[in-house]
Simulated scan of single mutants.
Amino acid sequence: MEPKITIITAVYNGAKYIESTIASVIEHGGSCAYIIIDGGSTDGTQAIIQRYAAHLHFWVSEPDKGIYDAFNKGWNKANDDSFILFLGAGDTLLSLPQRESFEKADAIYGRVMMDDKSYFRATADFRLRLGNTLHHQALLIKKKLFPSSPFDLRFRTYADFDLNQRMLKAGVDFLFDSSFIAYALPGGVSAKFKVRESLAIVNKNFGPIYYVFSVLYYTLQFMKAKFAR
């Protein structure tokens, strides 16, 4: 049987980008159920979504509390036996994992192409305890792991990092599939690194020792970036 996949897009005033995201999902035919949660856009986004309504499992346009509130809404509308992927407006899905991967793990991650055509180096090992080493654009999560609303809305920028750490802490089986590829639009809510929130998430999930390790890790990364200029 084909794996059941649900793709969720959160958008607000994204008329400039939303159509490319929708097209990238539709290109995969009927293999994916597609959900779009619009935050009440006023720039023509709703009209674009309506043109593709026949291809959508569900869509709504209404005010929300931010991207992770929208993602939670989409998650709760997804089929209970599906794997779920999150895309923002402007992100595009390039290819899905091999069918066998869905039988081997509860979370599948792949490669995310960045603006300079390089790939984000995704990992789901000890490094995820220090910083977010997974991008949601190429991360499929089995819904049965979290029956409802997996994102903690206390974290406005890095609730996905919190979710990834919680999965790691719970011993979720992660699997890397190199054939799973997505493109991430540059910018977005996490474009400017928010140190305090990231450290708060590390402290919440892994305690003060990893908090200190993360401070050292972020400092090292900052210094490397500074001297690389």
Rank of each mutant, 00 (worst) to 15 (best):
M1S: 13
E2L: 13
I8K: 03
T9E: 07
T9D: 00
V11E: 03
A15P: 09
K16D: 15
S20G: 10
T21G: 00
H28Q: 08
G30P: 11
D38I: 02
G39R: 06
G39Y: 03
D43Q: 10
Q50C: 09
Y52C: 07
L56R: 07
L56Y: 08
S61R: 14
D64R: 15
G66D: 05
I67C: 10
Y68C: 06
D69H: 13
D69M: 11
A70I: 02
K77S: 07
D80S: 07
D81P: 00
F86L: 14
G90N: 02
R99H: 15
D116A: 15
A124E: 02
D125M: 01
F126A: 08
L128R: 07
T133F: 07
L140Q: 02
K143C: 02
K144C: 10
L145H: 01
F146H: 08
T157G: 05
Y158I: 04
Y158N: 08
Y158A: 10
F161E: 05
L163C: 03
L168C: 05
L168M: 09
K169W: 06
V172P: 00
D173I: 12
F180R: 03
I181C: 11
A184T: 08
L185N: 06
G187D: 02
V189G: 05
F193M: 09
R196L: 12
S198H: 10
N203K: 15
N203I: 08
N203L: 09
P208R: 13
Y210E: 10
Y211P: 06
V212G: 14
V212N: 11
Q221E: 13
Q221A: 12
F222L: 10
K226L: 14
F227Q: 12
A228Y: 08
R229C: 04
R229S: 07
